[in-house]
Design a protein around this nucleic acid. Sequence first.
RNA 1: GCGCACGUAGCUCAGUGGAUAGAGCGCUGCCCUCCGAAGGCAGAGGUCGCAGGUUCGAAUCCCGCCGUGCGCGCCA
Length: 528
Amino acid sequence: MREAVGAAAAEVAGAEAPPRGVALERPKNQAHGDFATNAAMVCAPIARDNPRNVADGIAAKLADELGDLLTSAEVAGPGFLNLRLSDAWYGGALGHVLGEDAFGSGVAPTPERINVEFPSANPTGPMHIGHGRNAAYGDSLCRVLKYAGHEVSREYYSNDFGTQVERFGASIAARAAGSDVPEDGYQGEYIDAIAKSIPGAAGMTAEELQHVGVEKMLAMIGETLTRMGVEIDVWFSERSLHQDDRFERAIETLREAGHIYEHDDAVWLRTSELGDDKDRVLRRSNGDYTYFATDIAYHQDKRQRGFDRLIDIWGADHHGYIQRMKAAYAALGGDPDTFEPVIMQLVNLTENGQRVQMSKRSGEFVTVDDLIDDIGADALRFFLVQRSHETTMDLDLALAREQSDKNPVYYVQYAHARINSILEKAGIGTDAGLPTAIPELHESERALIRRLIEFPDEIAETAFRRSPHRLTIYGREVAAEFSAFYRDCKVVGEADDVTQFRVGLCVAARSVLAQTLDLLGVSAPERM
RNA sequence: GCGCACGUAGCUCAGUGGAUAGAGCGCUGCCCUCCGAAGGCAGAGGUCGCAGGUUCGAAUCCCGCCGUGCGCGCCA
């Protein structure tokens, strides 16, 4: 269909390929046909004719090419071309959905090897809601990228080196000794729990406790991620960079490339020449390297592992870090376009309109585990990925808890379970295929088919824009379209060809819904 | 002060330069002798922050202003 319109547009414009900007879209208003195209308005300047004449030309060519698959093509408004398609075309479209193994997969124009780093919560405490959003987003993005045809590696960067984990170890040591944690330590009750869970903790040094504590903390975070349905492929230790010469080599690379200079006893990276506001310190005058320096070594390591693209998913408070890291990446010899930091905005956790405290230091925070216990992993993931990652969002705990049965996630899952139930009742083989003669269709059937065949475009767009939240909307739309079909069309007990066609439609809808839910990391129950 | 985001229905938020700007929640009123009512139907509710510009056409792109958030360290 799209090709036919493109070809007709190209011909009228006298060009080889369809001009940029030609779009085939689903009109919101049913009076505007099954599909509409702006092709004539785009081509008019090229063809040096007014849009309505151009539209007439395209319409004639389409009628020629599509034959009886096309019912009508009318020119409307400033030059829109409104197209109506026959039931035979709809039958063919549904057959196409059913005929593919993994409908909508492999749509990425150029498959890449992509490393996605998230949520990289510090191993000094449990995951809170911000990490939860990061994980829900990151994992769904990975699933979509993979489905679209990319090769994906999920990587967790553990900050198990430096000041923060030292304070963490000191805090455990203090609790193990029965004294108060230091002023700059971690206050949460979980520190107590960790201290108690380590046999002989009282006799261990802060450094030993730090290592054991980090190990325990990472295991806990891994368990939380598993409960969320997130499986990390690579757990990367910051400390490991310092255990061989990888750190020194990365710095040496920068030095050889001439990006480093010394000033005031410190070592600087000339990031200002690569898009940053000012130069940044790599080694302080006291001899210590900065966190930035280690991060550069980490990204050099990732780069050398042969990925086509690195995606880092960072919290909102890191957006000031983007320019300097891109500059460093370029200084290492990387193409800045293949390094893609994505910023996750904040989640404001509220309860009865009141802001819930999330400070790790004070220990008063709601953990992801608490939330899963409260509202379930499905609802949590759906909620967290429902909003665009670039929007600050509110999550009202009381609402999520008390009204969980009105959560949109149940609406989509319900449609899936209901289709399943209908297919069981129909009792005929779900792989029977469509009847050879397509029965006359109800408008709800056409609407549902139109929605289902959007799926590949939806996947491509979601992957390209790194916006998995689109799929929560798409899933609701499919569910709503199915509900309309369910209202208008009986499946069981109709004439053989009608039932057979509708069973096929149900199978297709179920498979698209199940796939959509899976990409969101949400279960697709057969019964609820 | 500088930089980066964000201002869309009562609330939370979608919206790819296209036709009459949408969804969920909340509100009002209906629908189960009917394959699942966790559902459906109808309704009320909008100066898309303000003011200019770009063009056949702007919530969308550009400039300015107002508001909110975040970041501006030889911290991590």
